[in-house]
Simulated scan of single mutants.
Amino acid sequence: MARTKKNRLIQMAPDFGGFIPQGIQNRNGKEVHINFEEYEALNLCDYELLTQAEAAKMMNVSRPTFTRIYESVRRKIAKAFIEGSPIRFEGGNVEIASWYKCEHCKITFTLVENSPKVCPLCKNYIITENK
Rank of each mutant, 00 (worst) to 15 (best):
M1I: 15
M1Q: 13
M1N: 12
K5W: 10
N7Y: 04
R8N: 05
L9N: 02
L9A: 06
I10M: 01
Q11L: 15
A13H: 04
P14W: 05
P14E: 06
F16N: 10
G17W: 09
G17H: 15
G18T: 07
G18F: 04
I20A: 12
Q25I: 12
G29K: 09
G29H: 13
E31H: 05
E31G: 14
I34Y: 07
F36P: 00
E40F: 02
E40C: 03
N43E: 13
L44I: 07
C45H: 08
Y47Q: 15
T51M: 02
Q52D: 13
Q52T: 11
A53T: 05
E54N: 06
A55H: 01
A56P: 02
A56R: 00
M58R: 07
M59L: 06
M59F: 11
V61Q: 00
T65W: 01
F66T: 00
R68H: 10
R68D: 10
I69A: 02
S72E: 08
V73K: 05
K76F: 13
G84T: 05
S85M: 04
P86A: 07
I87W: 05
I87T: 02
I87C: 02
R88W: 03
R88M: 04
G92C: 06
G92F: 03
A97N: 03
H104Y: 14
H104I: 06
C105S: 08
K106E: 09
I107F: 00
I107C: 07
F109M: 06
T110K: 07
N114R: 10
S115H: 08
P116V: 01
V118A: 07
V118E: 10
P120Q: 04
N124A: 08
I126A: 08
I126C: 10
K131D: 02
K131C: 02
